[in-house]
Design a binder for these strands. Structure first.
Lengths: 344, 344
DNA sequence: ACAATTTGCGAAATCGTTTGCGCAAATGTG
DNA sequence: CACATTTGCGCAAACGATTTCGCAAATTGT
């Protein structure tokens, strides 16, 4: 079942292939009459453009690549990626762009996927969905010259790299101050992988808030914990040494869910005994028991805006690389409680 | 920065472009000596193949399309899709295939994405990640003739459609019997969207188990509930009328989490007062409070196998359309409790 | 009515590959 | 040594679009 090409249409409509092409792109140099005629024939014959052919000559693909972080780890368990994907999708769909995602499992494999994408001209631009220390992808992209945007605060010279991000230090500061305002003084900070920029920024925000309010961030209280067991060990250690904070800032809903569980196992109730404020406001925070107060980072928007930046840049390259900041909103639910300062 | 083409390499290496092409595909008709020479030049000049050009002549794209279900709804909140995506990715990466996903938000938009993909020859095959009543995509694909596989039990003539699925009726039956074996008699069934095949199959399994054990499935007990509020209303209604079952089989971890929350709000504890068994065994079931006993449907495998089926079919089309069943495993955790039969 | 524009369309080159065919040199056969 | 085969590679035609250039017809101006 041979597909119908532009030539077939041309023949059928008694015009030249070039005319058909111009009709497709709605060129003003073609009369309405011929346009109508040609379009009718296209319709009748069931013509669909062959993108490979078009892309070949136009040297563009109308597709953007998305590089995920190491997918073997939590990347895809975590509702973050899907949600940013959803935002990206939405804008791409509007603009008739396609999406191609990396499939690699290891960092090395992902890097190779990326160079294949750009060297093989499979994409017009990329979205890097994370920002991480010692990552090879971003440096490669900057000197490849291809348009790209990173979701998160890029490591290195920011003005050469487009990015869309939250103000994570501010957000974490607010989260911490929220707890402080409720009377908490012993506040813990839990994040997942410490080599991602988000973790660092949020830690900074936490520290700033603590300092600002003359609270010493006990080093015992800041932890990087990424799976179930370490979390369990941590709370056990903390309660056994009688050092359990009264509040926790947790950089991720999944980790918060985990914390909730571990606390429950030690018969510590939230929010009665300890308060928790988390990040991302995914469906998990809504449905946790109790529902979690969470900083909404507007992940969907993050995705949407990054796609917008990228596609803008692809369509009309600009001199300076902008960076857009998506505001965060604190969504209050039931995991935080005011405490009355007893001693101290 | 003009990319280096096969011709450039040819010139530099003093051979014809066709020779370079044959070196790339490692044709046996080229001597080892020239192969070495050419490869060296390719390396030096930094040659990368242009896929558009190759695809144009080969009429293949080495990419598969993935059609998601309506993403505005829960699709991407739910860890299911990401996890099957991860499985698909893994196999695609092995086989050096690319992935392109639909971006549409509405069913109509998704359908259009699909026809664009196939008519525009952007993909060699598709994976439909759901199976749903009255869906236009699958029928379109069957008569387009393009290879595709559906994740789930296809509606309609199964032997014309490749699919990979769990035995969902069996799985639901086992889940229900698990509860029955623990002594439960009043068992509820909660699923999300009733128009998806999974829901139907699991409902059937539930009903079979009930019948088999001479338990009447009170119509009050089978519910389709897809967001927070309806769930809340449901449990309120049930407890107010004193009709709360002692056990629930819930077709999805997210819904189970939701149920957990609603029960908690009414001060009903799990598993003391009611037992819950859910499906999918995502990270959520591990981290819920209490951790949920869940039927592991091996979502990753589902994705992996579907990619395998599809790519096999693409590479060497076969006469008959196979369907593969991924076994389910019940993962016991803490959400189910044996009950002593009191009255009856 | 004739030159000057403008409008509408076609011819052909091009994008970077693959591939069928053919030709020369190298090898094998008797 | 003459002839048949095989081996190694180049030529040129696709693949299906876009785009530059130019030519004829239609329109305008005087």
């Amino acid at each position: 079942m041979m597909a119908v090409t532009i030539k077939d249409v041309a023949k059928q409509a008694n015009v030249a292939p070039s005319t058909v092409s111009r009709v497709i792109s709605d060129s003003p140099r073609i009369s309405e009459k011929t346009k109508k005629k040609v379009r009718k024939v296209m319709e009748e014959m069931g013509y669909y453009i062959n993108h490979n052919a078009r892309n070949l000559v136009q040297k563009s693909t109308q597709t953007i690549g998305i590089v995920m972080k190491n997918s073997t780890s939590a990347s895809l368990h975590d509702p973050f990626f899907p949600e940013v994907l959803r935002g990206i999708s939405a804008y791409c769909n509007q603009q008739d762009f396609n999406i191609s995602i990396t499939t690699g499992e290891s960092e090395e494999a992902i890097f190779n996927d990326v160079v294949k994408m750009v060297q093989g001209k499979r994409v017009d631009g990329l979205i890097v969905s994370y920002s991480k220390k010692d990552d090879k992808v971003v440096p490669y992209l900057v000197d490849s010259g291809i348009p790209f945007v990173v979701v998160g605060k890029p490591i290195g010279k920011a003005n050469e790299i487009m990015s869309v991000d939250n103000d994570n230090v501010q957000a974490a500061k607010e989260a911490t101050e929220y707890l402080i305002r409720l009377g908490h003084q012993k506040i813990g900070f839990i994040s997942e992988q410490p080599d991602y920029e988000v973790s660092i920024a949020r830690l900074t925000g936490y520290q700033q808030a603590m300092q600002l309010h003359q609270l010493k961030p006990d080093p015992n209280y800041v932890r990087h914990v990424d799976t179930k067991e370490p979390m369990k060990d941590m709370v056990e250690e903390l309660v056994d040494n009688n050092k359990l904070p009264t509040g926790f800032v947790v950089t991720d809903d999944i980790a918060a869910l985990n914390l909730l569980l571990c606390l429950r196992e030690k018969n510590i109730s939230v929010p009665e005994d300890v308060s928790i404020i988390s990040f991302n406001n995914t469906i998990i925070s809504k449905l946790a028991t109790p529902p979690l107060t969470s900083i909404d980072t507007q992940i969907y928007q993050l995705g949407y805006e990054s796609a917008k930046c990228l596609i803008d840049e692809i369509k009309t390259p600009s001199m300076f690389k902008k960076t857009v900041i998506i505001p965060t909103i604190i969504e209050e639910r039931e995991s935080c409680k005011k405490i009355v300062a007893l001693a101290e």
